[in-house]
């Protein structure tokens, strides 16, 4: 890996991208004559893979190592100097980063809700609730919209003098400062994220249901099982792999795809109450010009994701075995 320098990698890749695809035409006739075993033929898999592997190594795996290494060096006056764990200690001292970690904890707590809602809805769609043909298409739509668009729309809806408060005022409630109250804003943003993404999990659940053996449900019906019983004893065990997948991807989504919402809706405020690690990384890199500190926050985020992911898989596996 060390032979692939980061600096020259970029432009040479750009040049290497086109040729392999064009090669078949000039190479075709000659190698057609001397059939298999020719050098060009044996190299073919590597030629086909080279551009992709080069890009992935140079622009994804190499930066990962670079970033971890970077997180142990200093910013500003101490640029490039080895500072050990200083950046990590700075992070733990920074109230903004601590808020970000606290918000990650909140997301983990809300995770079962964010999985249960699409799970239940998918169950009802699968059981052919009236209108089931329409719901899938409607629910899935916000999931393909950019967080920026979703955030911008909810900026309008949730404004202090906006429509939602007008409606609440009409029934004698509120007004609530959805995006301006430090105790409320993070819930508003997470709520919007769940609104925007539950359709994604719903579609995944429905794909899981498509593999479900219908005779299981018929048997449950014959035995006179109620709906909650059917869900608990038939559907959950049969879909355990899908549920696992949704848990992990929903968690990854919460930790890595809320930037757009935060950027548009709150910019981390009010009073830093809606910071998440990814937003912290962006601020330190883009606004505060502290790339080494940002790298430490990146590495911390990566570790958090690994730990949360592995713990989740562990818990879900064990729960699956008890069934």
């Amino acid at each position: 890996m060390s032979s692939v320098g980061p600096a020259p990698a970029g432009p040479t890749e750009g040049a290497a991208i086109a040729p392999p695809a064009r090669r078949p035409h000039p190479a075709g006739p000659s190698s057609r004559r001397n059939r298999r075993g020719s050098r060009a033929e044996r190299l073919a898999p590597f030629v086909l893979l080279a551009p992709a592997v080069l890009i992935i190594v140079a622009l994804r795996l190499w930066p990962l190592l670079l970033g971890v290494n970077f997180s142990f060096t200093g910013d500003g006056d101490r640029n490039g100097m080895w500072v050990g764990l200083d950046n990590y200690l700075t992070l733990l001292d920074d109230p903004l980063f601590r808020t970000a970690l606290g918000n990650v904890g909140l997301l983990v707590l809300l995770l079962p809700v964010a999985v249960a809602i699409p799970g239940l809805l998918a169950t009802f769609v699968y059981l052919r609730v009236p209108g089931h043909r329409v719901y899938r298409g409607v629910y899935f739509f916000p999931a393909v919209l950019s967080p920026v668009i979703v955030g911008a729309i909810f900026n309008l809806l949730l404004a202090y003098d906006g429509p939602l408060n007008t409606v609440l005022g009409g029934v004698g409630l509120g007004p609530v400062d959805w995006l301006g109250d430090p105790d409320v804003a993070i819930f508003a943003v997470v709520g919007v994220h769940v609104w925007a993404t539950f359709g994604m999990a719903l579609v995944v659940f429905l794909a899981g249901f498509a593999t479900l053996d219908p005779s299981l449900l018929d048997a449950a019906k014959v035995d006179g099982a109620s709906l909650p019983q059917t869900i608990r004893h038939v559907i959950i065990p049969a879909l355990s792999r899908t549920i696992q997948f949704v848990f992990v991807t929903t968690m990854i989504g919460m930790l890595t795809s809320m930037f757009g919402l935060l950027y548009v809706m709150t910019s981390g405020g009010p009073e830093g109450s809606t910071y998440l690690p990814e937003y912290y990384v962006w601020i330190q890199q883009g606004q505060m010009n502290q790339p080494a500190l940002a790298s430490a926050a990146s590495t911390a985020l990566f570790l958090i994701m690994l730990v949360v992911g592995l713990v989740q898989i562990g818990i879900l596996r064990r729960a699956g075995k008890e069934e």
Partner: peptide, 13 residues
């Protein structure tokens, strides 16, 4: 490997 984790070194590259 999420983008947030590599964005600082990538920006430098």
């Amino acid at each position: 490997v999420p983008f947030q984790v590599i964005m600082v070194p990538l920006a430098r590259i």
